[in-house]
Amino acid sequence: MATFLASCVVAGIPLLFATIGELLTEKAGNLNLGVEGMMLMGAALGFITAYNTSNPGLTLLAAVLAGAGGALIYAIVTVTLRANNVVTGLTLTIFGTGFSKFIGQPYLGSSVPAEVSAFFARRAIPVLGDIPFIGPIFFRQDLFTYFAYIVCILSAVYLYKTQMGLNLKAVGENTAAADASGINITLYKYIHIIVGGALCGLGGAYLSIVRIPIWQEDVVNGRGWIAVALVIFVAWNPIKAFFGSILFGGLSILGMKLQVLGLDFSQYLFDMIPYVATIIIVVFATHKKSREAQGPGDLGNNYFREER
């Protein structure tokens, strides 16, 4: 059981990075449907850097820059040039998918160098790793995973316990009011969209470096869309995102695990659950008219001061 839950954590980590990234973006009032594209860009550039430099630090940096770069394009087009959020995000996905396939083509079938793999091998955290049950699940993982925990905790503290986090909430909730109260809307949007993109890039790199360390096209395989779903599923809450990611990550491997046990369940039916669950949540959120579950009030609306 503990082994299975540990695999759920591994499957959930890329989702966690991307979900927190999209969550920050949406808190700033922007719906970025380019998650899949940014993850692929991070996966490709991360892999290529790992392959050519064998340096784990540069690998992470490349993944961050790739995701942030994609997000920067999105931010310029939607925030400064006020283009439609949905269309721009989808374009980013098409662009990022093409870009990753294109630059990754010479590396098809290549493996992550041993130095990088060794750096991201599993290491138990002293003391924490020895806690019965919990230890083997959460604290005998790789450094990348521990970093995800830190990102998750930091973003929760940031959103709920700092002035900037509160301001951010105001920007997404009611942009005009936030602007009137003197918050620099443009700066907030840019920062959070870019940081969000960087996290998506890291999520992608986790897949291409740790999870599936041989380069293949479309290594992200729809996980970006699951992250978009997860943000709604966890009601824009980073702590819930942690458990949600592990849950959806677990669903993505459940069918195969059951087959190993001799139970004949199709993985593809389990794969539907995250999407169906998200649909149900979206429907309930509108039915109950609950503010919490509907997300930021100004999500996806462009803001133009003169139209206030």
């Binding site: 394009i73 269309v87 374009t91 098409i94 662009f95 998918t97 093409g98 870009f99 990753s100 294109f102």
Partner: peptide, 15 residues
């Protein structure tokens, strides 16, 4: 995949 890159760029600029 170069087609996807070019398509993406065209739309970014037009948007």
């Amino acid at each position: 995949a170069v087609a996807g890159v070019v398509q993406g760029l065209i739309l970014f600029f037009v948007l």
